[in-house]
């Protein structure tokens, strides 16, 4: 439980952080909230030579509103997201998701940018941010660019980011209308990570049909994914129990569920279907109310 020695750097600006990353790309890792990284260091599962602490860089933290979207700094903590009045008003699904991460201590320290960059395949945010069509803004030596949430994750602990880029903000669109959302999770008992987490956003049209449905699933596959089959089975349909059930049955279409101590592939696939159905039912109910 004692990490091997490392050098600790604490840049004051984003530019400096990116320069330090460039100069030390072989041995440096970024330290955000530290709730994934520090345990790994203590168990000596990783022995980086340099930690670059980005917690003091101005402008990376906080929640703002831009037109019909929320703009969330990468260093914003889960607790800040969970308790922010604007997030709760504009996008309660995201606040709810944040509230289900780990425990109070984790939420007080852990950051959204750190969590997404770490890309644990069982993390909660990815499902919700896929369902919300969020964009991730990353900044590197050549400036900023952005990814759609569903294109960001490339495998367990692997993202589309370059080594010298930093996830600086998350843009969450907040469309108006008869919107409902839900995040349902079967939690791993020890860690609280998702054995299966399903996030759903649905919008109903004035005639009560499903205008669109957006579904993100985490914990089930090597990467979080968009359940496109479920979405297409719902678009333009009336949200009847039969339609929802048939759609939910496509939750693991083209997906190979993973297997570990907490669930076999078969169980995970089953959970994905059950929780997709239940999340859809909740979201439709909310959208109609």
């Amino acid at each position: 439980m004692i990490p091997s020695a490392f050098e600790y750097l604490r840049p004051e600006t984003l530019e400096e952080a990116i320069r330090l990353l460039q100069e030390n790309s072989e041995e440096a890792v970024l330290l955000a909230g530290g709730h994934s990284l520090i345990p790994i260091l203590k168990a000596r599962l990783a022995q980086p030579g340099i930690l670059i602490d980005i917690s003091r860089i101005p402008g990376l933290k906080g929640i703002g509103r831009e037109d019909q979207a929320l703009l969330i700094g990468g260093m914003t903590t889960h607790h800040e997201i969970e308790s922010d009045p604007e997030v709760n008003e504009v996008c309660p699904l995201l606040a709810e998701t944040a509230s289900l991460i780990g425990d109070v201590q984790v939420r007080n320290r852990g950051t959204i940018g750190g969590s997404l960059s770490h890309a644990d395949p069982a993390a909660d945010y990815p499902a919700t941010l896929i369902a919300l069509d969020a964009e991730f803004v990353v900044t590197g030596p050549d400036g900023a660019r952005s990814y759609r949430a569903e294109n960001f994750f490339e495998g367990p602990f692997d993202t589309a980011m370059e080594e010298n880029e930093i996830l600086t903000s998350i843009i969450v669109p907040a469309p108006q209308g008869k919107i409902g959302g839900a995040y349902c999770k079967a939690a791993q008992q020890a860690s609280g990570f998702a054995v299966c987490g399903v996030a759903v956003t649905v919008m109903l049209s004035d005639n009560g049909q499903i205008e669109f449905a957006s579904i993100g699933i985490t914990g089930v596959s090597a990467s979080p994914y968009r359940a496109s089959g479920v979405e297409s089975a719902l678009t333009g349909q009336a949200p009847t129990a039969e339609t929802i059930e048939a759609a939910a049955d496509r939750a693991t279409e083209d997906i190979e569920p993973i297997e570990d101590l907490y669930g076999s592939a078969e169980f995970r696939g089953h959970l994905a279907r059950v929780w997709t159905k239940r999340a859809l039912e909740q979201a439709v109910k909310m959208a109609g109310s």
């Binding site: 345990p39 168990a43 791993q188 008992q189 020890a190 860690s191 101590l261």
Partner: peptide, 11 residues
Amino acid sequence: LINGSLMHYSL
């Protein structure tokens, strides 16, 4: 030991 941590062994 395959679940010898509090991330894996649930209290």
